[in-house]
């Protein structure tokens, strides 16, 4: 089953949505109406061109040097929903992780962790310093701005916009990291 996964080299040039090459041998597009015993994703060379070739994430995890790249093999995708099924099979394939795939996942987790823990340290550093500062320098509490004492300003109003801003920052960082990951996957 898993042998066909890397075998899309030849299909790479075909745009999605192209009409089938052999319409007569291709009785329906509706995968649901296929006989129940037919396993999905079966290798059937001349039924339908691939829906979105060469962009599948799982290709990343296949070893580029395996016979999978042999040009005479042809992978067929029956319909869009089947494509989803293939991604699932890739997840199963991932159990036998290739070193490339594992390295990429590790890198992604590391960059995301760096963003999350870095910003958390920033918040804890900023807010967590306040009680200690008030404890060590009592005169700080005597300062007042516009009739309101500094501690009340610092604790009642200021934290909320700061927390929101950091949350916003994190979302941008995390989504940029994810975009990078998707791009790396695509390049492979």
């Amino acid at each position: 089953m898993s042998g066909e996964h890397g075998s899309t080299g030849q299909d790479a040039g075909q745009p999605p949505g192209q009409p089938p090459e052999h319409p007569n041998e291709h009785p329906n597009d509706e995968p649901d109406r296929q006989p129940a015993h037919q396993p999905d994703g079966v290798w059937a060379p001349d039924r339908q061109p691939p829906a979105r070739p060469a962009r599948e994430p799982w290709q990343l995890f296949a070893d580029p040097d395996t016979p999978a790249r042999k040009p005479r093999r042809k992978r067929v995708v029956l319909a869009d929903s089947r494509r989803r099924g293939r991604v699932l099979r890739t997840i199963i394939d991932l159990e036998e992780q290739t070193s490339v795939g594992e390295k990429l996942v590790e890198d992604l987790v590391r960059t995301q962790a760096k963003a999350a823990f870095g910003l958390a340290a920033l918040v804890v550093g900023a807010l967590g310093a306040l009680p200690l500062a008030f404890y060590l320098f009592p005169p700080l509490a005597e300062v007042s701005l516009a009739g309101v004492r500094l501690p009340w300003l610092l604790l009642a109003v200021l934290p909320y916009p700061v927390l929101y801003a950091i949350g916003h920052w994190y979302r941008r960082l995390a989504e940029a990291n994810e975009k990078d990951f998707v791009n790396t996957v695509d390049r492979n």
């Binding site: 997840i91 991932l94 159990e95 996942v105 992604l108 996957v185």
Partner: peptide, 18 residues
Amino acid sequence: EDVSRVLLRMHAPDRLGF
């Protein structure tokens, strides 16, 4: 044994469909 697979699923961007 499946720790890498689970980590991938938790951290991979949604559009990859894991």
